[in-house]
Simulated scan of single mutants.
Amino acid sequence: MEGRGFQKDEAVIIDDGSTDNSAEVCLEVLNGMPVRIIRNAISKFSNEIELRKMQWKETVKSNPEWILNLDADEVFKNRFKEEVRQLISDQEVDVYCFRLYDFRNETHYREDEHWFAHQYCRPFLVRYREGFECKWNDRPQHCGRFAENVFELPHKLSDIRLKHLGWVKKEDRMAKFKRYRELDPDGTYGSNEQYQSILDEKPNLICFEEWLLLWQ
Results as ranks from 00 to 15, higher is better:
R4G: 02
F6A: 05
Q7D: 09
I13T: 07
D15G: 04
D16Q: 11
S18A: 13
S22K: 14
E24F: 13
E24K: 14
V25Y: 14
L30I: 10
R36K: 14
I38C: 08
A41E: 15
S43W: 08
S43K: 11
S46Y: 10
R52G: 00
M54E: 07
Q55S: 02
K57D: 07
K61V: 09
E65R: 07
N69E: 04
L70F: 11
D71H: 02
D71S: 08
A72G: 04
V75L: 11
F76T: 11
R79I: 05
E82V: 06
E83F: 05
V93D: 00
Y96S: 05
Y101A: 08
R104K: 13
Y109E: 06
H114A: 04
F116A: 15
A117N: 10
A117D: 11
P123V: 06
R127I: 02
Y128W: 05
G131K: 01
E133D: 02
K135S: 00
P140K: 14
C143E: 03
C143I: 01
N149R: 00
V150Q: 00
L153W: 00
L157N: 12
S158I: 03
D159H: 13
K163I: 14
K170Q: 15
R173F: 07
G187C: 01
G187Y: 03
Y189N: 04
E201T: 13
N204D: 08
I206K: 13
F208N: 08
E209G: 10
L212A: 12
L212K: 10
L214Y: 05
W215I: 14
